[in-house]
């Protein structure tokens, strides 16, 4: 009987030890102040660019808390709260930082709103005409001067090796290839990398990646190298010009980063929009979703590309060309192949 008692005591001791609950860390208080504090803490613990943004923009997240805290009142309505919270997040100047409510989507799109667009949809479409080919989300055509033109509007839709190989086979007779990723706001990194893999014959080191490992602003994992493996299908061997503008964001920014490491690729146009942090989603007590950059991607020289990638040849849209129905960037790229 003593033995049983001993064992039962041990079991109860274990049970008591287990009474330490693994529970929520951020208080779930659905009040204006509760939501404000939850949002601030979430970002404080998870956002990956505080250190970088402090250097570049002079951002002090604690100071931001104190400044916006004063604007929170117990009786403010949802729209007023949304406005204050979005303004606070806007300080980070990150297109991947968003607040999602049923009535609005908070964002800071200054990465392209404050700059010339360098893209005219109807003019760009006139180059494709009506007889262009479509391979998944890739639209392509051979222009009159035997230059291939590929329009990639998004990386959200699946692109297969078969699509790319067939497209490159069709364009094989061209002397050069223009890949137009202007206004492409991103999508799946997988598809961006798949397209890039058809432009290298070797395993190419394209950058580094790391993520948060804890709540501290500088709790990061070691940097790990990122590679693009050559595709098994058709691979392009001639010159390539990538057309960029400020709306090239997120996965498109990463596509440009990868392509820029290949020797036969030239970037032309305006600086890309950036967005090198892979976004995660969380929420605050009232159910609004919060999106923020969580994983950092650097280029192969350890440089941040959160605020974009500079082109090799800067070309801006010319008003006179627009009036003539010409796309300055496409025309310059065609001239580039003539040279």
């Amino acid at each position: 009987m003593k033995k049983v008692r001993k064992i039962l005591c041990c079991v109860f001791a274990t049970v008591l030890m287990l009474s330490a609950c693994v529970d929520e860390e951020i208080p779930n208080r659905n009040t204006p102040l509760g939501n404000f504090e939850a949002l601030w803490q979430l970002m404080d613990q998870h956002y990956c660019f505080f250190d970088y943004k402090q250097k570049e923009l002079g951002i002090d997240w604690n100071e931001i808390h104190d400044r916006y805290y004063k604007r929170i009142t117990p009786y403010m309505n949802n729209e007023q709260l949304f406005e204050v919270l979005c303004a606070m997040l806007g300080e980070l100047k990150d297109g991947h930082v968003n607040l999602g409510a049923s009535f609005n989507y908070g964002r800071n799109w200054s990465f392209w709103e404050d700059y010339p667009e360098n893209y005219h949809d109807s003019i760009a479409r006139s180059y494709l005409g009506h007889d262009y080919y479509i391979a998944s989300s890739l639209k392509y055509k051979i222009l009159d001067d035997n230059v291939g033109y590929v329009r990639v509007e998004s990386f959200s839709d699946a692109i297969g090796d078969g699509n790319i190989s067939d497209m490159l086979t069709k364009l094989a007779i061209c002397r050069g290839l223009i890949i137009d990723v202007r206004n492409n706001g991103g999508g799946q990194l997988t598809y961006a990398h798949k397209l890039a893999s058809h432009f290298t014959n070797e395993k190419q080191h394209v950058g580094y990646v790391y993520h948060k490992t804890g709540k501290g602003h500088n709790d990061f994992s070691p940097m790990k190298s990122e590679y693009i493996e050559p595709a098994k299908g058709v691979r392009w061997q001639k010159k390539v010009v990538i057309l960029t503008n400020r709306k090239c964001y997120s996965a498109t920014n990463d596509f440009v980063k990868c392509m820029h490491t290949f020797p036969n690729v030239t970037l032309m146009g305006d600086k890309t929009g950036g967005g090198s942090g892979m976004p995660f989603t969380q929420e605050i007590p009232n159910g609004w979703s919060v999106r923020f950059s969580a994983v950092v991607f650097l280029d192969k020289d350890y440089q941040q590309i959160e605020f974009g990638i500079e082109p090799d040849i800067t070309v801006m849209m010319n008003k006179a060309d627009v009036l003539k129905g010409k796309d300055t960037l496409i025309e310059k790229a065609r001239d580039f192949f003539k040279d």
């Binding site: 274990t14 998870h46 997988t190 990646v209 948060k212 490992t213 994992s221 892979m278």
Partner: peptide, 24 residues
């Protein structure tokens, strides 16, 4: 890991303390 994406683990094959020693 805390802020690690599944894209890193499965697409890029980059692990980071993903097998954890579990104890009471």
């Amino acid at each position: 890991n805390y802020g690690q994406s599944y894209y890193e683990i499965f697409s890029m094959k980059k692990t980071d303390h993903n097998v954890v020693f579990a104890h009471v």
